[in-house]
Amino acid sequence: MIKRFALFAITAMTGLAVAAGEALAQQYRSEPWQMWFQTPRSPSAERINEFHNLVFFVEAAIVIFVLALMAYITIRFTKKRNPVPSKTTHNTLLEVIWTGVPILILVVIAVPSLKLLYYVDAHPDPDMTIKVIGNQWYWSYEYPDHGEIAFDSILIPEEDLQPGQPRLLTVDNPLVVPANTNIRVLQTSNDVIHNWAVPALMLKLDNTPGRVNETWFNIKDEGTYYGMCSELCGVNHGFMPIQVEAVSQAEFEAWVTRAQEQFAENGDIPDIYAVLEEIENNDNRLAQLAE
């Protein structure tokens, strides 16, 4: 937590200076009154979006069809208009049709659905790897391919926000990644289950303690992407956002150089004796409370 003020400068370096040349990094997040997905900005997201268009078409057609039938029934078969009810209770052909046609529709959905599932699942040959670790209530990022980079990413409270930084979404140290690169993500957690999610990239995967989950992404457009923890993880579940800066390859390399110095100094690996002391203090406090 002490790091926050020191790392404020880094936010500026990564978030703004890195995108030098543009007045302000493009922000990809939801708009007021948004009714649809955020524009997909990765190959996976584009395919998910495209598949959803098909599914949505089917959904809308079914709802409209049923509503039309209901409207017709409401008008045509009232007590007044149709005083003598029919006694029909069977129509084999009709029953076969309304069982068979839905099956056909489902096959039309299922085939592209399964293809999509396998495409999105994992990339066979990623260019680099990052690790995403969930904590109550912040994210830790590590870059195993780039030396000793490891840092925590913590929500900036409302009163400390700079102009243009969205509330509840801005963090002190965003994840910085190169655009147009296949990036493998390995995810786990240090405590409870969290979920790392970025809507514009249509990424979402649980961080489960004791497990390493894998996904991948390839960001098409440079800019700032936002997301929020998507699995209930305790008191501050709503306050551990995800901020991803997608930059050019050259900018990323420059950032790596700076980050290696910056985060090496901070030494994110905790001192075991300090941890033990803290646990003891907590136990003492609890014991006092119990009394």
């Binding site: 959904e59 079914i62 489902l106 659905s113 599932l117 990424l203 979402k204 998507s230």
Partner: peptide, 27 residues
């Protein structure tokens, strides 16, 4: 009931797709 069940039912068909849950899950 029938109206609600149809609306909720078709979104269920969407949610059944593991590929779409990358966007829908936990929202």
């Amino acid at each position: 009931f029938i109206f609600l069940f149809v609306v909720g039912g078709v979104t269920g068909v969407a949610l059944a797709n593991a590929g779409l849950d990358y966007v829908f899950h936990d929202t």
